[in-house]
Write a protein that binds this DNA or RNA. Structure first.
Length: 420
RNA sequence: GUGGCCGUAGCUCAAUGGUAGAGCUCCAGAUUGUGAUUCUGGCUGUUGCGGGUUCGAGUCCCGUCGGCCACCCCA
C-alpha cells in the first residue's frame, strides 16, 4: 500500500522548518509594526466571484476552487488584495485615513509546482489605503527595502526595481495605441527582459523602436525621479533602481509598480506591488472610491534566498536555535522522587523557565544526554540526596548539592552568570 | 495544461540484465547515579505504483503517480 502523501505543492513543516517559518513571520511582523502598520486577517476561502470580478473568468484556471456543500462556487484565496478591497469598502466609515494595514495570509493557486512556486504559500502583504500622494508610495517601498534588510540582505544581494504604469499609459496614448491593446502591449514589455529582442520586436511591430529606447534608459519620469530622491533621503538609494522595464502582469495597477529581485537574478521575484487606485471602486460597484497601494512578499522565494546568502542564513540560524531549546532539564534518578520533581517543575515553569523532564523512567546517562541534546543550561537531579538536589551547570560541568527550597534562587544564579 | 530528465532504507547515494549494499540517522547495550568520543549489536526496502519483454528486471519497454527543469502563467 502506498502511504498517503501530501498533495502536490503542499508542504509539511517539521519543527525545524516551522521554526524557520516563525522567524520569517516574526521579521515581517516586527518591521511592519516599526512602520506603524497594523495587522488584519481575512477568510482563506472566498466566493470565486470575488476573483473573477477583478480578473475575468480566465483566472479560474489558476484558482484552487470547488463547489461547496451549499452549492456555492468558492476558491481558496490566491492573493489578499480583493479581500482587502472588499473589507475596506464595507468598513469605509470606521477608520481614519490613511489605513496602513498588513497581513500574513496563507495563499493558494492551482498550478503545476516548480522551484519557488508551490500551490500553497505564505505571503506578507502591506497596503496603504486612502492616500494618493507619492509619499505613500515611497513609504511602502521603504518598508519593502527594510524588510529585506532585516533578513540580512545587503544592497549587493537584492534590488527593488521601480517603474510607473502611468508612464506607460501616457506612452501608449501618445503612440495612438487603442486602449483595448494596452494590457497586451504591457505584457509584451513585461516579458521582454526574458526573451530575445527580435522576438519582442516582432510582437510589438511599429512600437518596437520607441519601446526599446525606453527600456534602454532613454525614458524619463519626473515622478520616479522624485520617488528615488525620497528614498535616497532615507538612505535606501543603494537598494532601489528606476527601471521602466517593470510593468507587472496584473491589469489593475494604475501608477507606481515595483518588484524586488535577488541581484544574481537566479530566483523569481521576492516581492512585488504597486498602486491600484481604481480597484476598490471597481470591486465595490462604485460604492467606495479610495486610492491604494500595496505589495506582497512570498515566503518561498524569500527562504530560498536566505539559504543562499550566508549572512542572512547565519542570522536566521542564530534566531532559530533558541526555539528548540529548553532552559532546565530535570533528571529523575530515583523514581520515588518523581512527585517531588514534578512539584519543582511546576514551580519553575510558573516562573517562566522552559523545563523538560523524562516522561518515562530512564537511565541517568540517557537523561543527561537528553538534557544536552535539548540545549539545557542547567540540570537538576532528584535522587537519594533528597530533600537536597544536585544542581548542575551544564556549561561548566560544575555541580553542587542544594536544599530543594532554594532551587529557584540557585537557577537564577546560574542563569545570571550565563546571560550577559 | 505541454515537453524533457529523474524516482533504490528515515537521509545521502552504490549495485556490466544474474542472491539489493554502504555511510549517516535512529534504537539497545559496554558492572550501581552524569553529557563527548569510541566500541558492539539491532531495525527499516513488495527498488514510487501497475503491467510487459526475458530462464532471470533496480537495470530494458509501456502506463500511471510523484519530483526537478523549461514553456504557459504569474498574485
Amino acid at each position: 500500500m502506498t502511504p498517503i502523501q501530501p498533495l502536490p505543492g503542499f508542504r509539511d513543516f517539521l519543527p525545524e522548518d516551522w521554526a524557520r517559518q516563525n522567524y520569517i513571520f516574526k521579521k515581517w511582523w516586527e518591521v511592519a509594526r516599526r512602520y506603524g502598520f497594523v495587522q488584519w486577517e481575512g477568510p482563506p476561502l472566498e466566493p470565486t466571484e470575488l476573483y473573477t470580478k477583478k480578473s475575468g473568468p480566465e483566472i479560474v484556471g489558476q484558482l484552487f476552487n470547488f463547489t461547496d456543500k451549499g452549492e456555492r462556487e468558492v476558491a481558496l484565496r490566491p492573493e489578499l488584495t480583493p479581500t482587502l478591497a472588499r473589507v475596506v469598502a464595507s468598513h469605509d466609515r470606521e477608520f481614519k485615513k490613511p489605513l496602513k494595514w498588513f497581513s500574513m495570509p496563507h495563499c493558494f493557486r492551482y498550478e503545476k509546482q516548480q522551484r519557488g512556486r508551490l500551490r500553497e504559500h505564505f505571503q506578507f502583504n502591506a497596503d496603504i489605503i486612502g492616500e494618493a500622494s507619492l509619499d505613500a508610495d515611497v513609504e511602502l517601498i521603504a518598508l519593502c527595502v527594510d524588510l529585506l534588510r532585516e533578513f540580512g540582505f545587503s544592497a549587493n544581494d537584492v534590488v527593488v526595481r521601480i517603474s510607473d504604469r502611468e508612464f506607460w499609459i501616457d506612452f501608449l496614448r501618445a503612440q495612438n495605441v487603442p486602449e483595448e491593446k494596452w494590457q497586451e502591449t504591457l505584457q509584451i514589455v513585461d516579458k521582454s527582459e526574458r526573451e530575445p529582442r527580435e522576438k519582442t520586436a516582432t510582437k510589438l511591430g511599429p512600437l518596437a523602436q520607441p519601446v526599446f529606447k525606453i527600456l534602454d534608459g532613454e525614458g524619463s519620469s519626473e515622478k520616479l525621479d522624485r520617488a528615488f530622491d525620497a528614498l535616497r533621503v532615507r538612505g535606501l538609494a543603494d537598494f532601489v533602481q528606476i527601471d521602466l522595464g517593470i510593468v507587472r502582469g496584473l491589469a489593475y495597477y494604475t501608477g507606481i509598480v515595483f518588484e524586488a529581485f535577488d541581484r544574481g537574478g537566479k530566483l523569481r521575484a521576492l516581492a512585488g506591488g504597486g498602486r491600484y487606485d481604481n480597484l476598490i471602486h471597481q470591486l465595490s460597484d462604485g460604492a467606495v472610491s479610495l486610492p491604494a497601494i500595496g505589495f506582497a512578499m512570498g515566503d518561498v522565494v524569500l527562504a530560498e534566498l536566505i539559504n543562499e546568502i550566508p549572512a542572512a542564513k547565519a542570522k536566521m540560524e542564530l534566531a532559530v536555535a533558541p526555539q528548540r531549546e529548553v532552559d532546565i532539564y530535570i533528571v529523575i534518578a530515583k523514581e520515588e522522587r518523581r512527585a517531588d520533581a514534578l512539584a519543582q517543575i511546576q514551580s519553575l515553569r510558573d516562573r517562566g523557565y522552559r523545563v523538560d523532564f523524562p516522561l518515562a523512567p530512564a537511565k541517568v546517562g540517557k537523561q543527561f544526554q537528553a538534557a544536552e541534546q535539548l540545549g539545557a543550561r542547567g540540570a537538576i537531579l532528584f535522587g537519594d540526596e533528597w530533600p537536597e538536589v544536585k544542581v548542575k551547570d551544564l556549561h561548566t560541568g560544575e555541580q553542587r548539592l542544594v536544599p530543594s527550597e532554594i532551587i529557584r534562587q540557585t537557577m537564577e544564579e546560574i542563569f545570571r552568570r550565563f546571560v550577559p
